[in-house]
Nucleic acid binder design. Sequence first.
DNA 1: TTTGATGT
Length: 258
Amino acid sequence: MGKIFSLFLTAGIIALGVYFSGLFTGKSVPQNLSGLEIPHIRSNDVIIPHSAYTLSYNEEHEQANWVAYELTREELADNFSRNKMRFKPDPDVPTGSAEDDDYRNSGYDRGHLAPAGDMNFSEQALRESFYFSNISPQQKRFNSGIWKKLEDLVRDWAQTYGSVFIVTGPVLEKNLTYIGRNRVSVPRYFYKAVLINNGKQPPGAVAFVIENISSKAPLRNYMITIDSLESLISLDLFPKLDDSVENRIESKISLNYW
DNA sequence: TTTGATGT
């Protein structure tokens, strides 16, 4: 949208303020609970904390670089109706997020990054999950197929291990096709990094990268190390996580699921 | 479909 210098300066100052205030408020910033920090921040990234997740907004692609949050066993609830929720622009994105018109008749789903199903413990959290800053264009058969299967798997892990830290988002490349007036990029791939650091066992982590198309392949075909994912997206997802964890796929995780 | 969506 607006590319005037002063606008960027204002946006930057707001973003910094939001970011630093977020460091000291509640669970929206995962590092308070994990000691592992939120993903590495590039100078032009706008970091936006919401009540139950934190995101980095990419204005060029009109969607998040990443969305990060902790999901606990206690949060696995089904308290509110998602059918009452509306997708809406994120009021906290200084440059304006994508909007409903961008997706209408595009042929693509409004695909959640932080799933609505992970945010159903709080009406506010669920409502915020419908902000377009948490949405990316996804093929329907991807969103309701392999991607949903991965979301279900992560919820299973939250139940099993008590707590998981999740960083998820689109792989934003140059020259992607786009939809809508705001030119929302259509990602070719999506990723999800999952860290289990519940204090009861050594930290373990694994990542998935899956193409934005229909797939019937087992999820383990898409498992890679955190290191590999970080190289792919040029981002340090878990700045304080030990390299020995980042460069192996946690065996306990992979053994349980195909 | 208990989910995750579209469209009016």
